[in-house]
Write a protein that binds this DNA or RNA. Structure first.
Lengths: 335, 335
DNA sequence: ACTGGCACTCGGCTCCTGAGAGTGCCAAGT
DNA sequence: ACTTGGCACTCTCAGGAGCCGAGTGCCAGT
């Protein structure tokens, strides 16, 4: 069904369409891509590609444009992600190199991705599965309320409020904090939860301890990967003139953390592409998402990616996403 | 120059144009707004209003549309900000009521503002000038590096890294933290800086103390108002069909914290309006910004506002911004 | 299996025209 | 002095005709 030449035709059509955003016809095709056959032959191939769902015509007597299925085939079989050039690599490296802390790494990454792909970038906050608890702290802000701080070995700080009985003494709060801190130090999230359970079981007269432990358990349970940063939103304006209608739902989707997490959540350690209707979220079905996990080998920390028009330059976008993911991963591993 | 009727004509034109986004002519005007004069009279008034720069014609033989100057006059003299309805007030109140902490208040506020104005909302993180230090903490993450945490009475947590001599003992770190903590507790930022200076002067043999104090001083010095949150970006799609050209610079501006801060920075405690070219940032000169300070009376904590098309409903937007600012202020004062 | 030729389709461009909205101006009325 | 009706004028917009050209599908020939 799909001989070599038909695949070459599909590749040429996609290349041309990505570049010029115009339906491409048989004549232009043979002229621009040395296919060494006549337009008539190409026409037959195009007809057959259309029959199998890889191409479509906006209207009779216009050229063909690729369908989502066509892009899918292109991405799967017709393209090789070519590595970035040396200057590009150096640019990435120096741009990330100046980062001061975790927040800075993430915000630089998102700007970098948006910049080099000219699309909308999404970066999930990294989480280290091997992160351990470094420190906890309970700070009494009001008579009946305290602030619980949790610091992990990656420098991540989370917080929660704890309701206290009004009559609680400051010393009790402090000693409880010290006690819990000693118990969970250098434990992973899962280990800590187990230890905390034992701690509560052993001390049933105490009122402060259970309150703090509950808050801490809840804090440990909340998935710390639920933070996502978006950047380069202005690039939706460049997605194409035909995009104006579909733009509002896209912008809306980009504000929904939940949607973004689901988008990124499906990505593995390598580069994943979702094309058009392959995206579950209806607002994003006229876009493609290129994502990649990043972090240490065999230990994915988080995911990042870009959202662009289905008519995007897949090889180049995939190369950029992969490169940025690798550099950020390496950078985090070092720092 | 500007008698009562001309002002009424201007008001009617703006009202109509805001509603229908179409240039409005003399005939439609007398029909829709009981002006009790003939179209010819209105035409004379319109000609004179145009001559003075309040109106303009997209082309000959089209109706008139307001200029920035026209909107300015409208906002300054022709409109009264009418209070919100009871249900609206209740909606604001309940929506903000569920907020758990400061982050939550801000994120709810930005969503609320975007929702009720159908425009892009911008909220600056609040700062309490009377905030005092509640707690500091130094956590050693690596042999040569520690994390400094600062908690204020408003529940705000900031952090910084401290470089330590490798040979520093854990006990010294801890005692230093306790010592500094005791010294600055319940002090305002300014008082703390002074106290810290004395502390360093009195103990010149210590190596740990100066390192931590330096980091803390830097932390206190960084302006905590430099954080801004944006929401409702999808609403730019509703700014109008004529807006598509100007959209990219607007989206770009919305990603620049610096630009947003300057936008908001000019606002006073009451509602401020910048119309079109009154905005300094070129990318936003086809938009209007409605902003307001919020916080306790005579003690502005921060600013919030919305960005919309110059052709916006000013009275209603101003009412919404004012109401939200007041509610958030009240809410912060209580919690 | 490929190619050249040919008839056909259909969108886009241009030109034209008429309708309609809106204006500016003027002379007359109050 | 202001207001008004009338009128000529301008200019956009919508619709229709007609042409062009790009592109297709098909077929017969190599």
């Amino acid at each position: 069904m799909l001989d070599e030449r038909k695949l070459a035709v599909l590749r040429a059509i996609i290349t041309d369409y990505v570049e010029n955003s115009e339906p491409v016809g048989s004549k232009a095709l043979v002229e621009r891509y040395r296919l060494d056959v006549s337009p008539a032959t190409i026409r037959n191939d195009m007809a057959s590609l259309e029959e199998e769902g890889y191409l479509t015509q906006p209207h009779t007597s216009a050229g063909r444009i690729p369908t989502d299925k066509g892009y899918r085939l292109f991405v799967d079989r017709l393209t090789t992600v070519k590595p970035l050039s040396q200057p590009e690599k150096r640019a990435i490296s120096t741009f990330l190199g100046g980062a001061a802390d975790l927040d800075d790494v993430v915000s630089r990454t998102v700007r970098l991705l948006a910049q080099i792909t000219q699309q909308v970038a999404i970066v999930q906050y990294p989480i280290v599965s091997t992160a351990v608890i470094r420190h906890i702290d309970v700070i009494r802000l009001h008579p009946d309320r305290a602030l619980l701080l949790l610091v992990t070995s990656t420098g991540r700080i989370t917080q929660a409020h704890v309701e206290l009985p009004v009559e609680t003494r400051d010393e009790d709060v402090e000693s409880t904090a010290v006690r819990i801190g000693a118990a969970v130090r250098n434990l992973t999230s899962a280990q800590a939860v187990r230890t905390l359970n034992e701690l509560v079981r052993d001390s049933d007269t105490d009122t402060v301890l259970p309150a703090v432990v509950n808050a801490l358990t809840a804090l440990l349970a909340t998935d710390p990967t639920t933070r996502v940063v978006v950047g380069g939103v202005q690039n939706v304006a460049r997605f194409g003139d035909d995009f104006h209608a579909a733009m509002e739902p896209v912008l809306e989707a980009l504000e929904e953390q939940v949607v973004l997490l689901r988008l990124l959540g499906e990505a593995r350690n390598d580069v994943t592409v979702r094309i058009g209707h392959e995206n579950e979220h209806v607002g994003l079905q006229s876009t493609s998402v290129v994502a990649s996990g990043y972090g240490m080998p065999d230990d994915v920390w988080a995911t990042l990616g870009v959202v662009g028009p289905t008519r995007m330059n897949y090889p180049s976008t995939m190369a950029s996403v992969r490169a940025v993911a690798r550099y950020v991963g390496r950078f985090l591993a070092e720092g």
